[in-house]
Computed example of a mutant assay.
Amino acid sequence: MVQDEGTSSSGESKSERADRRWVELLQEVRVAQTGVQILLAFLLSVAFTPRFIELSSADRDIYVVTIVLGAAATAALIAPVPLHRAVTGQRMKPKAVTWSSRLTVTGLLLLLCTIVCAMLLILRFVLNDVLAAWIVLGVLIWFVACWVVLPAWIRKTG
């Protein structure tokens, strides 16, 4: 079968492929958006609790970094929606899907950093600093195993 420039080996046109990838991406982003929004809401409310004043200067710094990371993750994970709105009708869906995918990966990396920092903050508050750091390192390794190593292994082994 001879395929033209706009058709993939699976028989999809560029437009059909972009539509399919867009729908898949939106499903993935919905899950991540919910998680990051709940986490950010929790983090924003922490500053208004009575025990917030008990945080050390270092813990307040970790809190600020965590809030900034959470806000950045939220922005990146929501960004595909306004990007799509801005280019709708401009015949730019393949490019919008590519950029939205990149924003989603960036958002997921920022979400990972937010989770790690939030855990560090909480565990430093309830445990000693060394134990907190080791637990957070273990959780970070687990996330990397689930989010990076496993997908890479699956892609490699087919």
Rank of each mutant, 00 (worst) to 15 (best):
L77A: 05
R17A: 14
S45Q: 12
P82Y: 06
I154N: 01
W147K: 10
T34R: 14
R155H: 08
F143N: 03
M1Y: 07
E12F: 10
V81C: 11
V2T: 13
T104G: 05
A76M: 13
A73G: 05
V105G: 00
V130D: 08
A18K: 14
R51M: 09
S57A: 14
A71P: 08
A72H: 07
S101M: 06
L69M: 15
C117E: 05
P80A: 01
Q27P: 02
W147T: 05
L137P: 03
K95T: 13
R124I: 01
D4S: 15
T66R: 12
S8I: 05
K14V: 11
P151A: 03
A132G: 12
N128E: 15
A96N: 02
I62C: 05
A47G: 15
S45A: 14
V23S: 03
A79G: 01
W142I: 11
Q33H: 13
I62Y: 02
D19M: 09
W142E: 11
V105A: 03
R102L: 00
R91K: 15
S9F: 08
I62A: 03
W22M: 06
L121P: 02
V148C: 07
V139D: 11
G35E: 12
I67F: 10
W99A: 02
R155C: 03
R21K: 14
M1P: 03
W142S: 12
G89W: 02
E24H: 14
Q3N: 11
V65F: 06
I78S: 08
I78G: 06
C113S: 14
Q90G: 08
R20M: 08
I115T: 01
L150P: 01
A79S: 02
D4L: 15
G138T: 15
V23M: 03
F48I: 07
V29W: 02
Q33V: 10
S9Q: 12
K95Q: 14
E12H: 13
A96L: 03
L131S: 12
T34P: 06
